[in-house]
Amino acid sequence: MAVASAHLRILIGKVGLDGHDRGVKLIARALRDAGVEVIYTGLHQMPEQIVNTAIQEDVDAIGLSILSGAHKTLFRRVLELLREQDAEDIALFGGGIIPDEDVTTLTADGVKALFKPGAPMQEIVTFVKGLKRQG
């Protein structure tokens, strides 16, 4: 019988019109194998669905994969909704084909980290495992 303890809970999903889910599934599976409880929402989510789900699931962080080019709009909308719902304690990170200048802008806006193609899985897992909230 496992000893009860505070598990790390992470929402992993894809927003917008973007059907490329090979990468996001690999991430979800790698986090599962690292002992994380992964809530996988699947494809084509609206930012509003993601934030409502994150709150209902009481996750420590949201990880979004965006390969559509709409990363600036979508990450900013999720940040805005987290603020509106007084849920800024839920961290936001992501990955995708994102130009360096957009990485700089979005991390300044409040996205905790953005991983680009070729990022080592262990680096992502190590980062995510540091996202456990207190309390």
């Binding site: 979800a28 986090l31 599962r32 002992g35 994380v36 929402t41 699947g42 789900t53």
Partner: peptide
């Protein structure tokens, strides 16, 4: 939950 790692992939709500 995984009996090996304690992790889980919670996919029902998809």
């Amino acid at each position: 939950s995984s009996s090996v790692t304690g992790g889980a992939l919670l996919g029902d709500r998809i």
